[in-house]
């Protein structure tokens, strides 16, 4: 890693100027480049939180793998959950290029010192939740993530390109689940609508607090990590949802949702941010359960990791003595 302490003041100024220059040109910062400490810290936090979200995000859906309504749906769900694991791994690798270790990040997560997207602290009581998660949660994620493909930190942007390619399958399969339910029996339609009612607001909260309460946004935008504000992305997402909801035949649970001709955007109700802060503070429906399961999986897998490392060590020794 670059050690800023070793640089003289003059060298530091030159390095900062070069960094500023690259950002001004909308170029990319690569792992070996000098970067301000705050930029490095912001990225480590953002990328590792993002990775944790993917890893924890496997849980609400894994709940339905054994109960999927058909073999086809089970195979699709398995592939999707495997993708989430993959996305977590791409992102951990990207974060590591900034100087944090994989094991350190794992520890932060299982000890409850790291955050992940609060959306995964909601439970998935019905099959329709698989549809609503794909359509709304993955939809919001895509909306957030597409601009991140152009994030100024090279490894992050490259990881996001891979992730976005894979996410579009996730959203479409969710839409399809809901569409099939909406074309089914009355009970199935109710199940689909109920899931949409429960996931709509939490998915809008995924974009983060309103712009005037998002203190780090301006700096992230100045560094070209973030390209659009939380409220802009949220607005864009709602604009995409409305016609999709019409195709599905579901109602979005906001009585004040209406097209505003003057603003050329949708008006909507105020978001209940107390709920958001409660879930963020660890008091959501499944916070404790998610962490407990993650910790268990980590601990129960310890013997596999140790055995594999020991096998590799012995094989290497054998090869050495044979040579």
């Amino acid at each position: 890693m670059t050690a800023p302490a070793d640089l003289t003041v003059v060298e530091n100024e030159a390095a900062q100027a070069r960094f500023d220059d690259l950002i001004a040109q909308d170029s990319r910062i690569e792992p070996r480049d000098w970067m301000p400490d705050a930029y490095r810290k912001t990225l480590i936090r953002q990328i590792s939180q993002h990775a944790h979200s993917e890893i924890i995000g496997m849980q609400p859906e894994s709940n339905w793998i054994s109960r999927a309504p058909s073999l086809k749906r089970k195979a699709i769900l398995l592939a999707k959950v495997q993708d989430e694991a993959g996305h977590g791994l791409y992102l951990y690798s990207a974060a590591q290029t900034l100087g944090i270790g994989r094991e350190e990040m794992m520890q932060q997560l299982i000890e409850g010192r790291a955050r992940y997207s609060s959306i995964f602290n909601y439970t998935t009581p019905t099959w329709a939740d698989m549809g609503a998660i794909g359509w709304l949660v993955d939809g919001a994620a895509i909306c957030n993530q597409v601009p991140l493909c152009r994030a100024s930190y090279g490894p992050y942007g490259r990881a996001m390109v891979r992730i976005c390619k894979e996410e579009s399958f996730h959203q479409r399969q969710g839409f399809e689940i809901l569409l099939e339910l909406m074309q089914g029996t009355e009970a199935q339609r109710e199940m689909a609508q109920d899931a949409v009612n429960r996931w709509y607001w939490p998915s809008l909260m995924m974009f983060g607090p309103p712009d005037d309460e998002s203190p780090n946004s301006a700096q992230s935008m100045a560094w070209n990590i973030k390209r659009f504000s939380n409220d802009d992305l949220r607005q864009r997402f709602v604009g995409m949802l409305v016609p999709q909801a019409e195709v599905l035949g579901v109602t979005l649970p906001d009585p004040n949702l209406a097209w505003n001709e003057e603003r050329q955007a949708y008006d909507m109700s105020e978001i209940d941010w107390t709920e958001f802060h409660e879930v963020l503070a660890g008091r959501g429906p499944a916070n404790a359960e998610r962490l407990r399961r993650r910790r268990e999986a980590h601990e129960e897998g310890a013997w596999v990791r140790e055995a594999a490392a020991e096998y590799a060590r012995k094989q290497a020794l054998k090869q050495q003595s044979a040579a």
Binding site: P31, Q96, G99, G101
Partner: peptide, 9 residues
Amino acid sequence: PGETGTEAW
């Protein structure tokens, strides 16, 4: 970048 040399794998 990314290799710390201290991790199990």
